[in-house]
Design a protein around this nucleic acid. Structure first.
Length: 304
DNA sequence: TCTCCTCGAGATCT
DNA sequence: CTCGAGGAGA
């Protein structure tokens, strides 16, 4: 499933929805949501809560029953996801979302929104995991349970949606306090080597009607005719999107001409192997040469 | 030396 | 996904 999610928020925020899910497993594709809990926080205080258990279509694995304490028996009279989705939608509408390793929860939620409401979940979000890694780099791990123990949160995570959401809320408020004390620049929390990609996305104005609209590109190998940065700019200018690594959301892997020739001799980069694996799984991803990329943009290719 | 790039290892969610 | 080590080339 192609996901067009919101953007991560780089500044400290005082109003948000902190939420957590329990699911039947780790895969948004094959597993289901069995519990949703969320709190609306304004200026550090919880002003309202919403939560519900959810009956899945398939029974819960025993491992999940053990982990969460949620049993098949507990869910047999509970509403199905379709029935509670409108309430969830109302509760989070227009708000910034906070969660621990939030992409996990966001992906599940995104998919059910798309399937049952035909809506793309595009709320902006903050990932407590990323914040914790930057604020507490000395910690040996940044799991929710470990953070809660080290920082002595009042609410203890218990692999239940509400307890974990409440712990995440406390941790975020604590992290904001540390950031203020140490005068850290919150926007820097998200800086990585990926920065150049984000820079280009924010600086280059995208053409909404561009010929690459909705297409996601990844480059591998050195390009012959221009710097990779320049190629990224071209993609964004034509309405496309760029990524650093091959994943299911990627539509095109562009091979620098050097890599293309190498491929003819059997040499393959890891990006290429990953792309081929995804294609075998039925994903609509194409591997194209640098020259074909220029042709897509109507830039005349004058070699070979 | 500097910059750009690749690759492997380890992490987090249920 | 993110980080660090190390290659390739200017």
């Amino acid at each position: 499933m192609r996901r067009n999610k919101g953007d991560f928020v780089t500044e400290a925020i005082d109003e948000y929805i902190v939420f957590d899910l329990e699911t039947t497993g780790l895969s948004p594709e094959y597993d289901e949501i069995i519990e949703f809990s969320a709190c609306h926080v304004v200026e550090g205080n919880i002003v309202s809560k919403y939560g519900t258990l959810i009956q899945p279509n398939y029974s819960i694995p025993e491992f999940i029953e053990q982990l969460t304490g949620i049993t098949n028996d507990m869910l047999k009279d509970k509403p199905k996801i379709e029935a509670v989705l409108p309430d969830i939608q109302r509760f989070i509408k227009g708000k910034i979302l906070l969660g621990h390793n939030i992409h996990f929860d966001l992906n599940f939620l995104y998919d059910v929104f798309k399937t049952h409401l035909d809506v793309e979940l595009n709320n902006n979000y903050v990932d407590m995991l990323r914040v914790a890694r930057k604020v507490y780099p000395e910690f040996k791990t940044h799991k929710l349970g470990y953070l809660a123990k080290m920082l002595e949160t009042k609410h203890k995570p218990a692999h239940r949606a509400l307890s974990d959401a409440l712990a995440t809320h406390e941790l975020y408020e604590m992290a904001k306090a540390v950031i203020r004390e140490k005068d850290m620049d919150f926007s820097k929390l998200y800086q990585s080597r990926n920065k150049t990609i984000n820079d280009i996305k924010s600086v280059v104005s995208a053409n909404e009607e561009g010929i690459l609209n909705g297409e996601v590109f990844v480059f591998t190998g050195t390009l012959e005719k221009m710097e990779r940065k320049k190629a990224w700019e071209l993609v964004v200018k034509h309405g496309g999107d760029i990524a650093d690594a091959v994943s299911k959301k990627v539509n095109y892997l562009v091979l620098g001409n050097g890599a293309y020739r190498q491929r003819l001799k059997g040499g393959k980069s890891s990006k290429m192997r990953k792309a081929e694996a995804l294609i075998l799984q039925g994903n609509e991803l194409q591997i194209i040469s640098e020259n074909v990329f220029y042709e897509m943009l109507n830039i005349i290719s004058n070699s070979e």
